[in-house]
């Protein structure tokens, strides 16, 4: 638990550092600022949740059930599977449409992303097949 707090604290510090850095070097674009603010807020929220978990038994029990409930895990895995499938299908159509309208770079990036996803799937599947 303490390791987690330390890690979240570190993320917050990185966020603050990044924010200060963007101000100092006048690179206040929305991308870097958003990342810095995202780091800071996610760190604050997570630290708050850890403290609530430690001091509120009812909340701790709720979190334990949420994280260990096998139906929740089943639903999460199923949702991931379906999302993966739709990503591949929608992206495949998009690649063709983008090619037709001459957005070659976007089309290529999307095609590579599908290739990487399928490749990762194949690797993870092979590893899991050996494990189970």
């Amino acid at each position: 638990m303490n390791k987690k707090i330390l890690w979240y604290f570190l993320v917050g510090i990185i966020g603050i550092g990044l924010f200060v850095f963007t101000l100092f070097y006048n690179i206040e674009d929305s991308f870097w600022n958003s990342i810095a603010i995202g780091f800071i807020f996610s760190s604050l929220v997570r630290i708050y949740r850890v403290f609530k978990y430690k001091n509120n038994e009812e909340y701790a029990r709720k979190i334990i059930i949420e994280n260990n409930d096998e139906r929740n895990k089943f639903l999460a895995d199923k949702a991931k599977g379906i999302a993966f499938y739709f990503y591949i299908v929608i992206s495949s159509y998009l690649i063709i449409i983008l090619r037709i309208f001459e957005y070659k770079e976007m089309s290529t990036v999307l095609a590579y992303s599908i290739c990487m996803l399928v490749f990762l799937y194949w690797i993870i599947y092979s590893v899991l097949k050996r494990k189970y």
């Binding site: 949420e66 409930d69 139906r71």
Partner: peptide, 17 residues
């Protein structure tokens, strides 16, 4: 140590444990 929805789904036969 499961959610109430899990019990409900089990009873309705929507989810197999």
């Amino acid at each position: 140590m499961v959610s109430r929805q899990t019990i409900s789904s089990l009873e309705n036969g929507r989810y197999n444990p």
